[in-house]
Amino acid sequence: MIHVPLFVLAATVSGAMTGGRLRDQVPVARNFLVAVFEWFGDLGLFCGRLIRAALAPPYEFGELLRQCDAIGSKSLPLVALAGAATGVVLSLQTRYSLIRFGAKAFLPAVIVFSIIKESGPIITGLIVSGRVGAGIGAELGSMKVTEQIDAMEASAVDPFKFLVSTRVIACILMLPLLTVASNFCGICMGWVANTLAEPISLRLFIEDGFKSMNFSDFLPPTLKTAVFGLIIGIVSCFQGMRTTGGTEGVGRSANSSVVLSSLFVILADVVLVRLILTVWG
């Protein structure tokens, strides 16, 4: 039975990578492999060009700032809301479990730890994949199909420098900050939900929660979201810049940017969590 979800996943991913329709995906196995290799090959070339463009002066600070605003500030409400909801749900769920095991005193610590170590970062990563991934995929995609990217090249401006590198760097910089915001909202709402069930002062909650936490519990999980940012930025810019086929193609790019960037964020999370546990115990 496990083959069915695998097949669906393969079909979705190869569809996203090749821009093909379901009908073209029946001989999945072979086409899928070819598509995946091609996709990664192209991605490698794309990254090479991106690195060269990003490192060569002059730097596009103005545009970078604009992108930080578009990607960071404009995602803040959504990310804060998602973080807050996570806090509430965590508080409600763990409360009953802990009471059942007679470990209610650990509630603040459990909430703070699980938000900071995992739920905050991954929820932020996935929310931003959705919002920013689709945005970048569609924006660059429509610029591509309406020849605006060509127009930029014709004006001797490297779109990899002006459009791609600024977006990727903005994603890398903004994700950790958004994660901190999401963690903050999550912990606050966790306290609110907790207090509604059984009053506890915010100070005590925070003190209890952070008592056994140190910097190495906070820093690695928060900074790992910079990697999520890198993934979201590169994947969605890549999908946007290789858009073909008019309006329909723009839709496909937006769609595949979200599918692929959230998929890779989750996969990267697995690797990074393992890595962080190995390095920082």
Partner: peptide, 10 residues
């Protein structure tokens, strides 16, 4: 360079 469809930055 003038593009056939103008290609202004929208």
């Amino acid at each position: 360079f003038l593009f056939q469809q103008a290609a202004l930055y929208d």
